[in-house]
C-alpha cells in the first residue's frame, strides 16, 4: 500500500518536473515568435504601428482639454503571481489607491501585464488561455492552489527570459512598447521630458530594469525604478536607470536568489553593470520594516501594523512617495530638436 502511494507520488513528481522543464524550454518562444513576425501584433520596423498613430491623433485632440502637466508618471508592474493587469490582487489595489492619494501630482498606471510582450493576459486570447483561466478560477481551492504553482513557474521563466542577454532585449522591448502605449493613452507628452518611474513588485522588479533602455530611448525620458522586494538580476539595462530605490523588508530574503544566481551581482565582478551602478551611488536600499516578500505581512498588507501605528502598506507608500518626490524634471526639449538629433544618429 505504502509502496503504491510512494510510486504514485514519484510518478506525479516526475510528471510535474517534466512539465516545468518543457515550460522552461518553451518560455522564450512567445517573445521570439512575436519579434520574428510569426504572430499577430508583430512589430513592423519600417513603419509606425497603427495603434501609435491613432494615439498621436487622439492625444492631439485631448491636448486641448488636458490641465496641468503631471510631475511624473508611475507605472506599476505586478509580481509573478499575476495573470493579468486588470485582475490585480486586493492588496495591490489598496496599495495603488493609497499611492494615488499620496501622490496627487503623479499619474499612476497599472494596465500593463509585465509577463507578455503584447500585454496579453495569461487568461486572455492565447493557445492555453482556457487552461490558465481554469487554474486561475480554482486558485482559492486546495487543488487550484497547487496548480497555481504553474502560474508562478510560467511567469518566473518569463523573468528569466527578460534577464537572459539573448532573449532579454526582444522580450523587454515588447513590454516597453506596451508601457509606452499605455503612457501615451494617459497623455504622456510625445516629446518625452516627464520622468517615468517603473515600480515592480518581486519579478516585476527585473522587468522594470529590463525595459529601462527601451523606454529611455523610445520616450526620450529619464527612467527611475522602484523595486518592491524586486528580484533584480544583473541586467545591463540598469545602466539606463537614473536612480533605483529598492525596498527590502527584514523578512524578505528573496534577494538572496539574485545575489547567488547572477554573476554580475557578485561583489568581486567589479566591472558588471550592476556594480558600476551601485558604485555611482544610483541605488538606494531601504528597509521599510519587518515586511515579508508576499502574503501575510508583505509590503501591501493593510492589517499588519508597525510599532508607530502605521500599516505596512502605508509605510510602503510613504517611502515611495518620499523617494519619487526627490526626482527633478529634466529641461524640456522640442520635437524638432530631438528629431534632428535622432535622424543625425542615422535612425
Amino acid at each position: 500500500m505504502l509502496d503504491a502511494v510512494i510510486l504514485t507520488g514519484l510518478t506525479l513528481g516526475a510528471i510535474v518536473l517534466g512539465l516545468l522543464f518543457i515550460m522552461a524550454l518553451l518560455s522564450p518562444l512567445e517573445a521570439l515568435t512575436w519579434w520574428a513576425g510569426w504572430t499577430s501584433h508583430a512589430p513592423s520596423p519600417g513603419k509606425l504601428s497603427e495603434e501609435v498613430r491613432e494615439e498621436i491623433e487622439a492625444q492631439a485632440d485631448r491636448r486641448r482639454e488636458v490641465g496641468a502637466r503631471p510631475r511624473f508618471y508611475l507605472v506599476y508592474l505586478t509580481a509573478i503571481g499575476g495573470v493579468s493587469a486588470e485582475e490585480l490582487s486586493y492588496r495591490e489595489r489598496v496599495f495603488l489607491e493609497t499611492l494615488t492619494e499620496a501622490l496627487p501630482e503623479a499619474v499612476i498606471i497599472s494596465d500593463v501585464y509585465p509577463f507578455s510582450v503584447t500585454n496579453n493576459p495569461l487568461t486572455g486570447e492565447r493557445m492555453l488561455g482556457w487552461l490558465w483561466r481554469k487554474i486561475h478560477e480554482k486558485r482559492k481551492t486546495i487543488t487550484g492552489g497547487i496548480l497555481a504553482t504553474f502560474i508562478f513557474a510560467r511567469n518566473l521563466f518569463n523573468v528569466a527570459v527578460s534577464a537572459d542577454p539573448r532573449y532579454g532585449p526582444i522580450n523587454n522591448a515588447g513590454v516597453a512598447r506596451e508601457i509606452a502605449k499605455s503612457l501615451y493613452r494617459h497623455d504622456y507628452p510625445l516629446a518625452g521630458d516627464i520622468p517615468v518611474v517603473i515600480m515592480g513588485w518581486s519579478g516585476g522588479g527585473q522587468i522594470a530594469v529590463g525595459v529601462a533602455p527601451f523606454l529611455c530611448l523610445g520616450l526620450d525620458a529619464p527612467i527611475y525604478v522602484v523595486s518592491i522586494g524586486g528580484v533584480l538580476t544583473d541586467d545591463p539595462g540598469i545602466a539606463f536607470v537614473e536612480h533605483l530605490w529598492h525596498l527590502q523588508g527584514d523578512k524578505d530574503h528573496f534577494h538572496l536568489i539574485s545575489d547567488i544566481l547572477f554573476p554580475g551581482r557578485w561583489p568581486f565582478i567589479k566591472n558588471s553593470a550592476w556594480n558600476r551602478f551601485k558604485r555611482a551611488g544610483k541605488m538606494t536600499v531601504i528597509t521599510p520594516g519587518p515586511m515579508s516578500h508576499t502574503g501575510k505581512g508583505d509590503y501591501f498588507d493593510s492589517n499588519a501594523i508597525l510599532p508607530n501605528g502605521q500599516t505596512f502598506v502605508e509605510r510602503t507608500v510613504e517611502i515611495i512617495r518620499d523617494a519619487v518626490r526627490t526626482i527633478q524634471p529634466p529641461p524640456p526639449t522640442s520635437i524638432e530638436e530631438e528629431l534632428e538629433e535622432l535622424l543625425g544618429r542615422g535612425a
Binding site: 519579434w35 501609435v52 532585449p169 526582444i170 530611448l217 520635437i335 535622432l342
Partner: peptide, 25 residues
C-alpha cells in the same frame, strides 16, 4: 546581434513617431 537589432528598431520607431507628431502639429 539581438540587442543591436532591437535598439535600431526602437530608435527608428521613435523617429517615425516624432515625424508623425510633427505632421499632426
Amino acid at each position: 546581434d539581438p540587442n543591436d537589432l532591437v535598439m535600431a528598431y526602437v530608435r527608428a520607431q521613435r523617429a517615425l513617431m516624432l515625424q508623425a507628431a510633427q505632421q499632426q502639429e
